[in-house]
Amino acid sequence: MKLFLDQIDVQCKNDRPTLVCWRGGVYAVEHILETWTSRTAWWSADEAREYMLLETTNGVMEVYRTANGWTLSRLFD
């Protein structure tokens, strides 16, 4: 498992991720393994995070979405 905090692009269909674009690669989302939310700093307006654990063609990626876009959080080998 590697930690990242990279900004990424995610394409969605019906609010469900289908493609993850990261460092020049484009990876198809095969399954959404789990979703959860985080909002520990509630006093900060843009802090709420919606996490997803995605099984992609590049392995399992933990990503999250905030008001500012998508971030790759962790990559599981």
Partner: peptide, 14 residues
């Protein structure tokens, strides 16, 4: 405080 990590604190508003 709200800046401290603690197991009793909630992590989201759900």
């Amino acid at each position: 405080t709200i800046f401290d990590h603690h197991t009793a604190r909630p992590v989201n508003d759900q």
